[in-house]
């Protein structure tokens, strides 16, 4: 079965050998997982959120396990864009699979400079714009909660990176995710990925303290899958550009559900922690599952939700 996926944006098209990507922040820079599978077999991987300058990240504890999920408040610790381009990227198999940079900034101007810095680099297939991080003080989820700000960031990035396919990553922490999707589509986004984490918290009843130093964090993992499916479906119904589904995917059956809801591709996040082979296994198992169900093309499956 042909697993090839074409994400046809308004400006740029992104070709993927299969719909399985790995989600930012859950797959390091890819190299961390090279001992557990063939990176080149993936549809692509999205690296840890990058900022213009290095960021130390939040205080610890930064992660806590919850029921069927986890909370994180890592705070975008990273070595900055220059270190990434000079030291990390050369060691990644960008010739063989799509390497996608996930970018974060505190203002539209800073987003623009970061996008401009990455635009000329042919080793990157696309940029994913994180306007939905709940764990940083400045910007972060704020951009993702106001359609006007989201559009502003989107057009700034699109203008500064004319050669790149621009994916805008939406937050579920909004009242109307379809409105956000329409705003970034109108501002030029080539595709939309959703969802980022849901805001949550965890309390230790003995010490009466929050379990995260940051008090609140982002919930991910199997627990959020129903929310993610709902968001993907609402977004896919609202926009014409491709949608990438994220949230709680832990097996191939989950992937099919997201495609049926309207996703063209998907990202594997927390499942990478449950089994470091997870994404690689899903790439191998997906065609087998489709064959068993008599599915011959992903195009036929996409958005095929029956409503009566």
């Amino acid at each position: 079965m042909d697993l090839h996926v074409t994400l046809r944006g308004k400006r740029q098209t992104l070709q993927l050998k299969n719909p399985v990507l790995t989600a930012s922040g859950t797959f390091g820079y890819g190299a961390e997982f090279s001992a557990y599978g063939n990176l080149s077999s993936l549809g692509g991987f999205i690296v840890k959120g990058l900022s213009l300058l290095p960021r130390q990240g939040n205080a610890t504890p930064r992660v806590v396990e919850t029921c069927a999920g986890m909370l994180n408040a890592v705070g975008l610790q990273n070595d900055g864009v220059e270190h990434f381009l000079n030291k990390t990227l050369p060691r990644l198999p960008w010739q063989h699979t799509a390497v996608i940079a996930n970018i974060y900034a505190a203002s539209a101007e800073e987003f623009a400079s970061l996008a401009a810095r990455l635009d000329a680099d042919e080793r990157l297939s696309a940029l994913e714009v994180n306007i939905s991080c709940p764990n940083v003080k400045e910007g972060g989820v704020l951009f993702g909660q106001d359609p006007r700000l989201a559009a502003e960031v989107t057009s700034a990035v699109c203008e500064s990176a004319p050669h790149k396919h621009i994916i805008v990553k939406l937050s579920p922490n909004v009242t109307d995710i379809a409105a956000m999707a329409l705003a970034v589509e109108a501002a030029g986004a080539d595709s939309i990925s959703c969802i980022n984490t849901l805001q949550g918290m965890s309390i230790d009843y003995v010490t009466r303290r929050p379990r995260l130093a940051n008090v609140i964090g982002g919930l991910s993992g199997p627990a959020i899958k129903p929310v993610a499916l709902r968001c993907v479906w609402q977004v896919a119904c609202a926009v014409k550009i491709p949608v990438i589904g994220i949230g709680g995917i832990s097996c191939c059956e989950d992937i099919l559900e997201f495609i049926i809801a309207g996703a063209s591709a998907i990202e594997i996040g927390t499942a990478n922690f449950m089994d470091p082979r997870a994404a690689f296994t899903m790439v191998q198992d997906l065609p087998k599952l489709c064959a068993r169900l008599g599915i011959t093309s992903l195009d036929e499956l996409r958005g095929s939700l029956k409503l009566d």
Partner: peptide, 13 residues
Amino acid sequence: RMACGVGACLGCV
């Protein structure tokens, strides 16, 4: 405490 054990999640720092 660790989530991934492979250096990816930056949770155990």
